[in-house]
Design a protein around this nucleic acid. Sequence first.
RNA 1: GGCCCCAUCGUCUAAUGGUUAGGACAUCGGCCUCUCACGCCGGUAAUAGGGGUUCAAAUCCCCUUGGGGUCACCA
Length: 483
Amino acid sequence: MSDVRVRFAPSPTGSLHIGGVRTAMYAWLWAKKHGGTFILRIEDTDAERNTEESVQVVLESMKWLGLDWDEGPGVEGPHAPYFQSKRIETYRTWANTLIESGHAYRCYATREEIGAARAAYEEAKGKKGFRFQSPWRDRTDGDPDASHVVRFKAPRDGKTGWTDLVYGDVAYPNREQQDFVLIRENGLPLYNFGCFVDDLTMKVTLVTRGDDHLVNTPQQILLYRAAGQEPPQFAHLPMVLGPDGKKYSKRHGAVGVMDFADEGYVPDGLLNYLARVGWSHGDQELFTRDELIAAFDWAHVGKTSARVDFKKMAHVQGHHLRLKSDAELAELVVPFLKKRGVEVAADDALLRSAIAPVKLRAATLAELAEGLDYFFRADADLEIEEKGAKKFLTPEFAPNLTKLADIVEAADPFDEATLEAAVVAWTEAAELKMKNVAQPARMALTGRTRSPGLYETIVLLGQARSLRRLRAGAETAAANAGS
RNA sequence: GGCCCCAUCGUCUAAUGGUUAGGACAUCGGCCUCUCACGCCGGUAAUAGGGGUUCAAAUCCCCUUGGGGUCACCA
């Protein structure tokens, strides 16, 4: 195992969304590529917003995506525990070390005092930018048993910068820094401090996160310096936006990973699409998981925020769906069929053979199930498209359906070639347009105007069932006056 | 508002001083054809604007404009 140690550190405040997936994936790819360690750490120090359900959703999402972690919940490892809420003592220890070395101090100012000062500032200046100047910065006469927070004694001159793997050289002036809080009154660490302590003690070599954390990085670097430690490398990823360029949210559609799972996406498709949002590898668009691992690099991660394009996502997704074997798809599609009220076993022979033609017409498992539906539904329960019925199940086409039924009945052997030969001979002799036979037949057989090839569909449905549906269709058509 | 970041077809992006500015999705034609797909062939379509530097700029510098992030005892 190499010394590459990367982590994904979500806070469990909701579903794992698309931007988070990409961040997690890039870190994961980097670890895999270098035989390093991928750590999953749960940053759950905000009791107000964290929920146990969210923790489960994150774990479930990561598992579904196949982004397995080498250290983290359920796996543990040399730096356990991997929940920040269970590492309070570690933070306390590091805070005390910084206090003793003079890099941090106990501040007894109340929220009310600070809030009032901030309000006064914003009132007077009419803008944001208040920086609290604690009177306790250089005092040592406070009572450590009294209620207090621990603040970092931030430098006021100079700059703090680093070379970001994505953004290059970035620096922030220290005068922008205030004496930020390390430990809250309730004893829990604040983001920057918890992150610093964990990344340090977990020996993380590269920190990856969204670029909304760019401004936090100087604070963390300042902490490393104060502790006499070498900061890790940083790679900040640009935001992933909704199709309209606004912050991605529920109104754009599926947000969480499990939403995509429910819609029948396959993990490799989602990963492939997301990988190419913000990263490139020449002209290559389609990648298997292994190709992604081999090709991924930070040099080709872009700096611009990107919008998701559901159309392209569907395209890439469809590609990965079709990459799967029919047997695998059969297993995967069963739950989606069940959702439609269709019960069928994954090893069902008809299911196995119907998948090949239908998967060319589907991008997701849900669409696959939709396309498979009529092969398993009882004749009486067939869903009939109204528009198609109006157009093709009409008296003028009734004779065609009857004739086709006769052909199906007489076909021997009952296979595509035989059926096609008979139908072609008939339509040519009768000077019938193929369309006028195929479309009504499609409606009768499947209830739809779109399906795999006619002969293919007939053979798949079987002689008896095709016959029943064609005869019933002919009756319906004959009875359908008007149109 | 301060600070920081960003800017190539509609969208995702390639091109790290010299290309007819390339690819993918979408779109528009065409092929295939019993429908719809898949696939294949072809078209339309971009360097935000203005100044520099250079023999040469999408590429380097400055300004403008536009977008985003952040300014908490959230993460």
